[in-house]
Structure formats: C-alpha cells, structure tokens
C-alpha cells in the first residue's frame, strides 16, 4: 500500500520542528529557509497550516521538466528531483500550480518533498501528530487531489 503525508492543520502549533527536520535531513543544517515543508500562519484565524507537495497524480513538475530530472520513485511514489540531471532552468517551479517545487540558489537546482525515501523527517519531528505518514487511503488523498483538480487543466482520460 502506498503511503502519503497526511496533514491535519488543526493540530499544528507552529513550532516549525518539521521545517528544521526537513532542512537537516536534506541540507545537514538547521535552516528553515531551505525546508521543503512550510508552515503558514493565519494569525487572525488562529490557524497554522503545514504545506508541502502532495505528490499529485498530475505531476506538473515532472511533465514540464525539459531534461527528465524529475522521476517517480518506484517505492514511495514520490516525484523526485535528480540533482545530477537538473539544470536549474526553473520551468517546473512555474509549472507546479501548488508552489511546492522551488529553486535553491546555492545549489542552482530545484527541490521538492521526496518523502525522505519513505521515512519523512517532518513526521518524526512533529510533536503533535499534525503531520503523519499513513496509508494513502486514509489520508483524504482524494480530497487533496480534488482541490488539486480545481486548478487542473490537464486531461483526465475517459478511455
């Protein structure tokens, strides 16, 4: 069973442990500016929303990549950026309508959530279980994809 990130904003306290864990996992430093998951704070609603790539079925980034640098990981289903292939053209960053693949100036490459190979660091770090990694069926993945679909101009085959 494929697993995916399940985010429950109502449990998020805004501690940013997820952002630190992400940057440490991927960059070896505590640097939230480089985190692939981002917590948005809606102060006057009293709401904090962790937000990252949903590994959407449409894979806009993957389709837009001109050099085949983004591929699907067979084990996790994650769309993964192969840094050795990425040329840093940033086309994926404007193609992804969710804003979840971003250019990193230091490396001259793009980055996105890769589910840490199946053991997401943000999940381990989250103290309130606002971010969990569970069987895809349980995650409301369809719900997430549904809103993904709102911006979708891409085809869905009826065949």
């Amino acid at each position: 069973m494929q697993k995916s990130l399940h985010i429950d904003p109502s449990k998020c306290t805004g501690c940013l442990q997820c952002e630190m864990a992400c940057s440490y996992e991927n960059h070896g430093v505590f640097n939230i500016a480089k985190s692939r998951i981002k917590v948005f704070n809606f102060e006057h609603e009293g709401r904090k929303v962790p937000y990252t790539c949903t590994q959407c079925a449409e894979a806009w980034c993957l389709n837009a990549c001109p050099v085949d640098a983004i591929r699907i990981d067979a084990a996790t289903g994650a769309k993964i950026v192969h840094e050795d292939v990425c040329v840093g053209c940033k086309v994926c960053t404007i193609a992804c309508p969710f804003g979840t693949i971003n250019y990193v100036a230091d490396s001259g490459k793009v980055q996105k959530c890769d589910l840490c190979g199946g053991d997401p660091a943000c999940v381990t770090a989250c103290p309130t279980a606002a971010i969990t990694y569970v069987d895809a069926d349980w995650t409301g993945l369809d719900k997430m994809r549904q809103w993904a679909g709102k911006t979708n101009t891409q085809p869905r085959a009826s065949a």
Binding site: S10, C15, K48, P127
Partner: peptide, 17 residues
C-alpha cells in the same frame, strides 16, 4: 480560547490564541 500555539521549536506550546 481559539487554539494553543508554540514559539519556534517549542514542543510544549503553552501560548494562547
């Protein structure tokens, strides 16, 4: 009380919103 909130890095989250 709307919710509780944390400061940076805090796993307690005593803050009041």
């Amino acid at each position: 009380l709307v919710t509780n909130a944390a400061c940076f890095g805090c796993t307690i989250a005593c803050g009041r919103i």
